[in-house]
């Protein structure tokens, strides 16, 4: 009975994924507080649209997507240097990977100290004759600061993937380029990048997943959504509405919006991965 053989997997998926999803969708159409359990149609979704904090959270997701090329190019460039065996490349290889093993809570706590107004980063700026910056307290730059810290904390993993990709670069092509008199930028542009195209696509996908799902811890520790709601992401919004504001139905609606967004991104990713692995 082949049906029986797939039953355990199907049961796990249904019980742990599909049922909670349907329940969440169901809750998102009910009310909170006095309306608990009552069908309210799309009222929660309208509340979300009217809530400037949720709109900021969605805008910040857009900001993450804009920051994606930076998050991919940083490990890409550093991996290229390591591949070209810059002096001390063995040491750098370990150092670059080190932040990956730290938990976001620890990284957040460290950067809270480093980036505090009277912290070391600003002391350095002042010594260099510049004005101190309120890295986490200025609404216009706080999100960029947290994204930068996230990139610092996670680029090591992408670097390792790039290093693995470099191992597959055809040495004879590099030799041919050298014989033809190609300089370093030409070698990178005409040989290394085309050879690494599949790796780059894969890193794009994994980095995007990391950014969309893995920033809660950092945000929670570093800014908790502030200042003025400038650093909210949908996950943090859901967490706050569910726990602090005691509005689980609204949190469910926000979860459904995030789910649909992730569904779209997920399908795009699947497409890219399929193309990257030439699996048609």
């Amino acid at each position: 009975m082949p049906v029986l053989l797939v039953a355990p997997a199907v049961l796990v998926v249904v019980a742990l994924r599909i049922v909670p999803l349907v329940m969440g969708a169901n809750y998102s159409l009910t009310g909170d507080g006095a309306d608990n359990g009552a069908f309210v149609g799309l009222a929660n979704y309208r509340t979300l649209l009217d809530d400037p904090v949720f709109r900021t959270a969605l805008r910040n997701v857009g900001l993450l997507l804009v920051a994606l090329p930076v998050a991919v190019s940083v490990p890409g460039i550093l991996a290229t240097f390591l591949f070209l065996r810059v002096p001390g490349h063995r040491l750098y290889r370990s150092v670059y990977f080190f932040p990956v093993v730290l938990s976001p809570v620890i990284i957040g706590a460290i950067f809270n100290v480093v980036l505090s107004f009277d912290g070391p980063a600003n002391q350095l700026l002042v010594r260099l004759g510049m004005q101190p910056v309120d890295w986490l307290g200025d609404g216009s730059i706080a999100m960029l600061t947290v994204i930068a810290v996230h990139i610092w904390a996670t680029f090591g993993m992408a670097l390792v993937i790039f290093m693995a990709g470099f191992a597959t670069v055809d040495q004879s092509l590099l030799d041919a380029a050298r014989v033809d008199g190609a300089n370093l930028p030409q070698t990178v542009w005409h040989v290394i990048i085309p050879e690494l195209s599949q790796t780059i696509q894969f890193v794009f996908v994994t980095t995007m997943i990391g950014m969309l799902t893995g920033m809660f811890g950092l945000l929670y520790i570093m800014t908790a959504g502030g200042p003025g709601g400038a650093t909210y992401l949908p996950e943090l919004y859901i967490w706050v509405q569910q726990g602090q504001m005691n509005r689980p139905a609204l949190a469910s609606a926000a979860s459904m919006v995030l789910f649909v967004f992730m569904l779209v991104v997920g399908f795009a990713q699947l497409r890219i991965i399929k193309r990257a692995t030439k699996e048609v």
Partner: peptide, 23 residues
């Protein structure tokens, strides 16, 4: 995927009962 997407709104409507908080 198409089946899942098509049946999703249906599931949501059918399931629109119950409450997010325990009564």
């Amino acid at each position: 995927r198409l089946v899942a997407l098509a049946s999703f709104p249906l599931l949501m409507t059918v399931a629109a009962c119950g409450a997010a908080s325990d009564n």
